[in-house]
Write a protein that binds this DNA or RNA. Structure first.
Length: 264
DNA sequence: ATAATATGGTGAT
DNA sequence: TCACCCTATTATC
């Protein structure tokens, strides 16, 4: 679930259900620990998403959330039921409640801490203040493969293993191309495409990158097996050219790519 | 029942 | 590069 689109969608969801409300904030199974008392009973006045980080604002005091690989959020109507499993944070608003489980980060922080986190993050294609030029400046001074730089959150914030693989395939870029060898027009094409597919992800709540002509099912909802070009498809035929999708480890994660569509 | 796996990240070696 | 944290789902005995 959690790449940048998930976090921005979550931010939208939290704004819709809780913004402007005085919230009951509790931490049934720890994590927020005593921090819950610092924001409990206060008004949620801002919700900010940057890359994979979410910040819930209570007048300069923030709850910093990072879902990591396993984090999940459930929201429901009415008063919250007895917590099931390890609920790390629970919000109770006027009409809805929200439970957070399995996050890598869930902590109450100040303004300065929030700024420090964001200072470490690169441009987020889903934010209005995003700068593709800043990202490119960081890419072009590295010899690291572009496939690794895309996962580096200080270069581009919000890209995960699925968007990395799908973007590289859609734009036909060789994953091992050194950052400094990436031509500027190619980067701008990548940025635009990334913005498109990530915005679509926020809208639909899932990652779908295939064009209709590359799906087996012609109509209706896009089937799970039809949604992606290469991610998770090692050894299977490329949807575009039929060549075998291969898998390599890049930046400590498995990257699937097509040697024909993405030549070196 | 147990193991492996996963869309993430940090800190030690 | 590895160990480790966090959890749910799927695969394998």
């Amino acid at each position: 679930m959690p790449e940048g689109h998930t976090i921005h969608r979550l931010a939208r969801q939290v704004r819709g259900a809780f913004l402007g409300q005085r919230l009951e904030v509790t931490s049934p199974q720890g994590r927020l620990g005593g921090g819950a008392a610092l924001v409990n009973g206060r008004v949620l006045d801002r919700v900010d998403a940057h890359g994979k980080h979410l910040f819930l604002g209570f007048d300069q005091t923030w709850v910093h959330v990072h879902l990591g690989l396993f984090g999940r959020v459930t929201q429901g109507a009415g008063p919250a039921p007895t917590p099931q499993g390890a609920v790390r944070m629970r919000l109770q608003g006027a009409e809805d409640y929200l439970d957070l489980r399995g996050p890598t980060v869930c902590a109450v922080v100040g303004d300065a801490d929030k700024r420090a986190v964001q200072a470490r993050l690169g441009s987020d294609p889903l934010r209005s203040d995003a700068s593709p030029d800043q990202a490119f400046a960081r890419i072009r001074r590295r010899s690291t493969p572009i496939g690794a730089l895309l996962l580096d959150q200080s270069v581009v914030a919000g890209v995960g293993n699925v968007y990395r693989a799908e973007l590289l395939h859609r734009v036909g870029v060789w994953p091992f191309l050194p950052g400094r060898s990436l031509a500027e027009p190619v980067w701008h094409g990548m940025w635009d495409d990334l913005t498109t597919i990530m915005r679509a992800g926020v809208r639909s709540g899932r990652i779908v990158t295939t064009a209709p002509e590359h799906r087996s099912g012609r109509s209706g909802r896009v089937r799970r097996a039809d949604a992606l070009y290469v991610y998770g498809r090692a050894g299977q035929p490329c949807r575009r050219c039929g060549d075998q999708v291969r898998a390599d480890t890049l930046a400590a994660r498995t990257l699937c790519w097509c040697p024909t569509c993405q030549p070196g």
